[in-house]
Amino acid sequence: MAGATNRGIVFECRGVHHAFGPNMVLHDVNFRIVRGEIVALVGPSGCGKSTLLRAIVGTHPPGRGRILVGRRGAAEMAEVAEPGRDRGIVYQRYSLFPFLTAQQNVALGPMLDQTSLAFRAFRFPSWRRLRRRHMEEAAELLARVGLGKALKLYPHEMSGGMCQRVAIAQALIMKPEILLLDEPFGALDEATREELQRMLLTLYAENCRAAGRGEEPPLTVLIVTHEINEAIFVGDRVLGLSQYWDWRGAGHAACPGATIVYDKAVPVCAPDADRNFDLFRDRRREILDVVFSPEVLPDREKHCLFWRQLENGEGQGVLQPWATAATTSGAGRDGSSTPGRPGPSS
């Protein structure tokens, strides 16, 4: 199904509502993600982050609203309602197939994507050649995430951090339009967590270099986390999903569900940047108040300023071309927060 034009926007949630029986979970969730961003989604426990993620993956389509993905080379965004290879996912648990080695886990995607059961059964010589290529690609990618020596290990023989690296490589080999990370580092120790955060920042740096060359950034990430410091450190933008918002002011008699109450760009960190969370103290305080505090019930639009920030030329990293384009064209400064302004000319 056709959607909006795909000018640098890789993903959009448009008017997403979801309820489990009488229990309203998500209410009018709207956001767009620029290709190459690392967007961190935070929110209180039980606010519907996982429900939203499941809707995006396509396993549990939303009750109302649309999920749109902009595929490379396509002029328009396509609506998605079931899981597909354009959205990779890394879960906190069960991130790998336990019966496959690290290399086989990574090579599984190309196998499933490029061949069928019939091809593998009846065209065995061709399949073997292709399989060899997939295994080589998998080995290269594993080497890139620092696991060149763990190719033959099964998941139960690897540490949690190694498993998550393999899971990320498994998703990356598919070159998804958007990579979804569902609290991927939640079960890891602090050192491993930092290591993986820096790995994400390295991938983001590659995105920035591609954007600087005027190319399409290769990887877009939506990371769901309950750790605010991690969200600010890893992301270039933080989205806050919360049930604590001024729904009475919006004319509702009862809370209609969680919605996006916070959407702002955050400073971009370099892969080797000092991991000093004190620098984020004010931002952290703000997110805690707006997103997590049941006492503060903000107007849902008040802290959703991401697109206005871009129009005011505040974008960093992959967003810089957008910000530059907005300032040179004189857009913005009118107070509009309408999402989805035209992207940079590149």
Binding site: V57, G58, T59, E82, P83, G84, R85, R87, G88, I89, Y91, R93, Y94, S95, F97, L108, G109, L112, D113, Q170, A171, M174, P176
Partner: peptide, 11 residues
């Protein structure tokens, strides 16, 4: 379920 969903996302 996660493994099944993941397989679908891998095509």
């Amino acid at each position: 379920r996660e493994l099944i969903y993941k397989a679908y996302t891998l095509g």
